[in-house]
């Protein structure tokens, strides 16, 4: 099965009452980027993944995970 990148961004964001726009402003990217990462359309760079995880006060492993692992 092919591996992909899953994430818990929506859960983390909702738990903090953050909108996509608010999270985007906090990180310094566009809402579009947050939206595409959250929906799995776009795989973020390590830098962006670290920024997103930091915005939630989590590690990258907590927010992102590999899907389809055997």
């Amino acid at each position: 099965m092919a591996e992909g990148l899953g994430n818990r961004m929506r859960e983390e964001r909702n738990a903090r009452g953050l909108t996509q726009v608010a999270l985007a402003e906090q990180i310094g990217v566009s809402r579009k980027t947050i939206n595409t990462v959250e929906n799995g359309v776009f795989i973020p760079s390590t830098t962006l993944a670290l920024k997103i995880a930091r915005a939630f006060g989590r590690s990258v492993d907590d927010v992102f995970y590999l899907t389809g692992e055997e």
């Binding site: 566009s30 579009k32 980027t33 776009f42 760079s45 962006l48």
Partner: peptide, 10 residues
């Protein structure tokens, strides 16, 4: 800078 972020470059 915002208009040219990571997803736009991709």
């Amino acid at each position: 800078k915002l208009m040219d972020d990571e997803s736009t470059r991709a």
